[in-house]
Design a protein around this nucleic acid. Structure first.
Lengths: 222, 222, 222, 222
DNA sequence: TGATAAACGAGACGGTACGTCAGGTCTTAAT
DNA sequence: ATTAAGACCTGACGTACCGTCTCGTTTATCA
């Protein structure tokens, strides 16, 4: 979560599902402006310098803030970047486009759009890489970045069911694994195409990919 | 390519598609043993410390070699790791298991196996992340890691055609894009499942994934 | 000058003839203890290892200080050594021993004593050698090491005049060159004897040398 | 000694007063041209880069010679520089100018001239500094550089005696110390003036210095 | 209104790793 | 056996960031 809301205690880790009581402490309250400035500076620096080039000192300077202020809020570079990037994923949504194919295409296109931003390009894989080792970070990433996407898949399937495109008896419990597999496929494929293969995601590619998912393998006899 | 074969010039970058003339340089030849020791040490250190914990000095020490010897061969940590990891991908192969479904399952399982090695876990995403910025590195990664996998897909489809499972008129030229899409899907999905979602790749999952690729979306009416 | 007094700006080069306004810088103030520890460690290391064996890393370790702290204060090994050695020359003084001959003998003996310390032995010529190329360093050396000695010569001559040993009309302006020549002679000769010829400076030698300066060449007829 | 004459054995340390028998070794003879080229290159590099800037690799390259060839002849940088510089001191001589004053002035002027060469400036003090620690080097320096100067002083005094300027009974044995003192004075003073004080040695200064040595202190009453 | 307390900027601190460089040794093939 | 070439090990270099700390200052709440 963006640490904008004051946390009297330490680092703002806990999900804070319940917004903590304002907890008006005694001292000087944390500057909300600083948080925004820092996150903006982080995104800017990411787009400019990439993950490797990003330094805490530089972010602090861009944000017009002391390094101490950064560390008071985020315990490490990775956590800072999670929050800086995560907000971009808040805009994901899944309108009903009338067919499962159309919905999938929309989701894929929107996700590809996000992954084409310089700051996301620079940060996403690096974050995932760090998450490979740091369990705590991995949890943060899942909450803030992965989960919002997964929800879209669930929503899309629910919509399809509602439209009568799908067998209405699948979802409730047993489809859990099916959702996972579809989600990993969509997210992983788009990431791999854009960030590893380095090829663009065109509308045509989106259509073909969605078709591959929904239909029998093209050219396959029987 | 592994820099084992001496390169009279600088870093052993060029693909050297044509095996360079033995190029008997004048001075003392580079020690082939050193190359092997370094690559081994790199894999060992990767598995132990992860990407972030890997330092050139440490690798040099493990390999019983001076730091300068590392830098004489690889210009950076990333390039070294590409070569260290790449050799693991050389073992990929695509035996004919009798059906496209079986072949795909075999490839996916083998790839997942590779991605489960500690050294690969630690390195792969980090490499991809670096490649996002460094064009030269990206080329190296593609040549040494991505391409060997892609070849498997081509092989698999050719085998399917030979077995008569597929329309024999698809392959030659037009399927280029189809191969890309399938490849990104297989590679991306497995990576995402293992390294991002952090879920294991079980035989059951492999079967379901292959089924998803080859058949209509499960539960989809019409 | 010893960089003990904080300088808000960069390296503490300027003579700071005017004691700088307390210059309460904004950040954490430099540790005065660190300066002392570093200079002590430098002298210790010099005496032990000599100029060539002295390394910044070793000094830092002896002083219980990070290498960066050294470089924050002194831009190079030479400048550090100048300051470390210079303080030893602060103790030079010129008491009135009743005659010019006695005064010269005292100065020579005291200077020889300084040059016999292991740390001075190791450092002085090396410093002078570096000063040959580095103009800035040469200035530092002159201010901190050479000048204090020269002052002694001036004092000695003034005392002699006051005692009526010398023509009272010489000093004011014209003697400038005379002072230079005497100074170079005393300093150069003692250095050469001790550091190049490698012979000791005994009281007898001191007496003979002072006699040579003040009287006609021994054995010379007329 | 310049290692120009072939030494089949190891480093050319021994004085080799007697030119060793040609000693036709078995293999390829050492290139005499290489020695000259190396010494020239050393002097050139010294004048250009100073002691600190001089590297064995650079000298080898300038001389068109492999580094190995350098080390086969000289065991270290300092020893190489001693030989490179020493030859310059071979030209010192002491013609009889008719008076002790004139002879001293000539010697001082000639020595100052030598010390004004860029290569000497760069090397002399550095050599002396190294000699402070390395006993072997100090011996080499004394033989090749210091001794030739000291001989001049002896010669000058002998000439003065022959001319009847000096008490003829002083020299033979007892003057040993006197010669040392005069020598240290002349050499040390000129070095200090040129290399430490950084002032030029003008004819006027030479005259004043010689006068100081031979006559009572100027301005001294009685 | 004044004490208390926390956040703030600045920047020094001890560290660790970096990538480079020079010294001096060695292993080649060629002479 | 010596040569030129150049790889090798060693170890210091000076720099860059890290994350922590210590200052003096500012801004709020509570008494």
């Amino acid at each position: 979560m963006a640490p904008t809301t004051r946390q009297p205690a330490e680092h703002p880790d806990p999900p804070a599902a319940v917004p903590p009581p304002p907890a008006r402490g005694k001292g000087r309250p944390r500057s909300a402006a600083a948080d925004l400035a820092i996150l903006d500076a982080t995104r800017e620096a990411l787009a400019e310098l990439g993950w490797g080039g990003l330094t805490m000192g530089d972010v602090a300077q861009r944000a017009g803030v002391a390094k101490t202020t950064l560390y008071r809020r985020w315990p490490s570079k990775s956590e800072l970047v999670v929050d800086a990037i995560a907000s971009l994923f808040d805009q994901l949504e899944c309108a009903d486009h009338g067919s499962l194919q159309a919905d999938i295409e929309a989701v894929v296109a929107r996700f590809a759009e996000l992954l084409s931003l310089p700051e996301t390009q620079a940060a996403l894989l690096a974050l995932f890489a760090e998450g490979t080792r740091d369990l705590h970070l991995r949890r943060r990433i899942r909450e803030r970045i992965v989960q919002p996407q997964k929800v879209l898949v669930q929503l899309g399937l629910a919509n399809a069911q509602a439209r009568g495109e799908m067998d209405p008896e699948l979802d409730p419990a047993g489809a859990e694994e099916e959702i996972d597999i579809i989600f990993d496929t969509i997210a992983g494929t788009v990431e791999h195409r854009l960030l590893v293969s380095g090829e663009p995601v065109t509308p045509d590619w989106v259509r073909r990919f969605a078709t591959l998912l929904l239909n029998p393998f093209p050219g396959l006899l029987h």
